[in-house]
Amino acid sequence: MALNKDLLDVLACPVCKGAVEPVDDDSGLKCPKCDVVYPVKDDIPIMLPDQSIPEKDWQGRA
């Protein structure tokens, strides 16, 4: 299920306050500035810094 566009417009990275964007399969939200991905579980973004995953480690997850 695709993430709601209105939700994406208001979400920001909790560390740098920059915009986040969905990864290809909508299983996470990527912060391009911090190079981390915040997972999306049950259509709920988990926007906690300690739950973020480095983008290099995210590759191949689904």
Rank of each mutant, 00 (worst) to 15 (best):
14 P>M: 13
14 P>A: 13
14 P>E: 13
14 P>R: 13
16 C>H: 12
18 G>E: 15
19 A>W: 06
20 V>G: 07
20 V>W: 08
20 V>L: 15
21 E>A: 15
21 E>G: 13
21 E>M: 15
22 P>M: 12
22 P>L: 11
22 P>C: 13
25 D>P: 07
26 D>Q: 15
26 D>G: 13
27 S>D: 11
28 G>R: 02
29 L>W: 04
29 L>G: 04
29 L>P: 01
30 K>Q: 14
30 K>N: 10
30 K>G: 02
31 C>G: 11
31 C>R: 08
31 C>P: 08
31 C>Y: 06
31 C>A: 13
32 P>K: 15
32 P>Y: 09
32 P>M: 13
32 P>F: 10
32 P>E: 14
33 K>C: 10
33 K>N: 14
33 K>S: 15
33 K>M: 12
33 K>D: 15
34 C>A: 09
35 D>F: 05
35 D>R: 10
35 D>H: 09
35 D>S: 12
36 V>S: 03
36 V>W: 03
36 V>T: 08
37 V>A: 05
38 Y>A: 03
38 Y>E: 01
38 Y>H: 05
38 Y>I: 03
39 P>R: 08
39 P>D: 13
40 V>G: 02
40 V>R: 00
40 V>T: 04
42 D>Y: 01
42 D>F: 01
44 I>C: 02
45 P>D: 02
45 P>F: 02
46 I>R: 03
47 M>L: 14
48 L>N: 03
48 L>C: 04
50 D>F: 07
51 Q>K: 11
51 Q>C: 07
51 Q>G: 00
53 I>Y: 00
54 P>A: 08
54 P>G: 03
54 P>F: 03
55 E>F: 09
55 E>Q: 06
56 K>Q: 09
57 D>L: 09
57 D>S: 09
57 D>Q: 12
57 D>Y: 05
58 W>D: 05
58 W>Q: 01
59 Q>C: 01
60 G>S: 05
61 R>H: 08
61 R>P: 01
61 R>Y: 01
62 A>K: 10
62 A>V: 03
